[in-house]
Design a protein around this nucleic acid. Sequence first.
DNA 1: GCAAGTTTCTAAAACGTTTTAAATTTTGAT
DNA 2: ATCAAAATTTAAAACGTTTTAGAAACTTGC
Lengths: 344, 344
Amino acid sequence: MRRRSTLKEIASALDLSIATVSRSLAGYEDISEKTRERVQQKAREMGYVPNVAGRMLVSGRSGFVGLVLKVRGPDFVDAYLGATVTGLSEALVAKGTDLMIATAPEGQDELEVLQRLVQSGRVDGIILTRIAEDDARIRFLQERNLPFVALGRTLAPLQPHAWIDVAGEDAFGEAFQLLYDLGHRHFGLVTITDQMTFARNREAGLARAMAATGDPSVRLTSIAAPRFDAEGHRRGIAGLLTGPDRPTAVIGLFDELALAVVQAASHLGLSIPDDLSLIGFDNVPAAAYAVPGLTTFEPGNRDIGRIAAATLLDLIEVRPKAPPTLLRNASLVLRGSHGPAPQK
Amino acid sequence: MRRRSTLKEIASALDLSIATVSRSLAGYEDISEKTRERVQQKAREMGYVPNVAGRMLVSGRSGFVGLVLKVRGPDFVDAYLGATVTGLSEALVAKGTDLMIATAPEGQDELEVLQRLVQSGRVDGIILTRIAEDDARIRFLQERNLPFVALGRTLAPLQPHAWIDVAGEDAFGEAFQLLYDLGHRHFGLVTITDQMTFARNREAGLARAMAATGDPSVRLTSIAAPRFDAEGHRRGIAGLLTGPDRPTAVIGLFDELALAVVQAASHLGLSIPDDLSLIGFDNVPAAAYAVPGLTTFEPGNRDIGRIAAATLLDLIEVRPKAPPTLLRNASLVLRGSHGPAPQK
DNA sequence: GCAAGTTTCTAAAACGTTTTAAATTTTGAT
DNA sequence: ATCAAAATTTAAAACGTTTTAGAAACTTGC
């Protein structure tokens, strides 16, 4: 095995001091052109790669940005995160920083993994996803004063911090309006019981849009189960779709739930969109595969990832007093799962 | 911000030497019970967390196992990798090692990212996925003598190394037999042109099983396109399924391709399984959602991840001369997408 | 030929840890 | 008490880097 070479080795090979070698490679001005060339040439030749540990020790910087992901079975990275991570990675690597994803297995608390990651000093900043209504991770990071960007908003009053989010409230308002204009009056919502901000925001947007019509014939039936309780959702959806007084239009909090509705409808012999209109959120790949294609919202997570990366690097560099925030709009992707309300 | 405490601070707080503190925390035998207690108590109190950089510098170990993932859009981690990463993460974290996932964005060469990761000394070992027929990454790691486990086999003759794989050849043989016994004689295969070992293995298994029947009426029509050329596959599948002489049973190299067949069949008005039987591989979540459910193989990737983690940790610890290898069987998951061959 | 200024280089300290070899303290036997 | 042995503690070096404060080597201008 070719051992890794060090500054010291380069120095003694060229009969220079370690300091000179270090500064040559760092491109300092007070090194003569000639020496700099010589050093860089030799470094290449010897395959020199700086030792991160040594560098970290003195600079206190790791050159990493961290992301903690909860892993659970095959869904460990869903489409939402996939696109986000892609964007993050692109933007970070372009700037010479690496994205490091630490994983929290099912049993393990995500906060605990985050704490380990941060306290061991392995990362210079953090990207936070899947923000809860009141998020302990944010409190922790603020206490440690480590730069971070939250992808999502909290509802609890916290110190201001950097965040980027998608305006789910507007999207759900738009979804409602689309369906209302198609004649639907009885709506179904499939949502989750978890204390996630995005759920509350989307629900609120839907409620607001409903109220704004002032139309007393508009009704909403919601069913909810915990995020990963697929069986609970299945039962809830089955209940929602059976009986004479069922909604003619259902909105899924996100595509996965909407796709569960597709499946339930198929079991029950309900045709989409003839008997039932359906709209989701996330625009996951499976939404395009579904038959008919699922009408949904594209949140632009890849862009969000890119923006978050740039924001975080800024934060690490300069630490401004007023942390940047950004609210973006999701765009409606029209496919075949929505249509006019069926005649009575 | 609460600054991080160091061994030195604990030492001076207790009026002990740094060495004693270090050894107390490491649980050495030659430290008196009393002192050890005192130190551990104080360390807890001061919220001491060892600095990785310092530790790395002297031990040469990072406490990380690395995985390089190519990211591309929302599919950055597909179901195959999702389950694998879950298993890896579970087993590693249980042993106090962290999994670090470095990302290679679309433009960037995966090998390059791997080299950076390894050469900077940030990882003690590597998990390699998506093995190519002749894999440059393996050559690189062997040259550097860094422990690694390949999830998949190469076809090129390389130095022996640790690997774990699923017997795709057997699975595809089994799929063929199942369909053959249902009366199918004209088979379709949707595969990829990429030089990936798993593709060649599965194809070979299918070919072998076909030949083993000795039945001259058995035929195979293959179509292939590059792995991520969805449009190419779409066209290929459309061609495969139109015309009077189309196969009655199609096997997808993996579920994603099989699901593309589902979609194409629906467009063409072919009923699955009445007109067309279909079998995939991977058992992705969408395979269960599909209507009808997709008959496929469960490769047990989560277990593979767990085993790979344990194997790699062993390798890092002891470096045996004969690297372990393991070939596992995938299990057939029967759903509704296969059935008897249609009558002529 | 020399002081002053400029350019180029370097010694040494620092970052936080582990470990080795040796020093110190305690214990037990006489 | 004393000494040897055992138990406990520690000084110092090492890991590889960056940076600070100077030192050394050149240029100028006279």
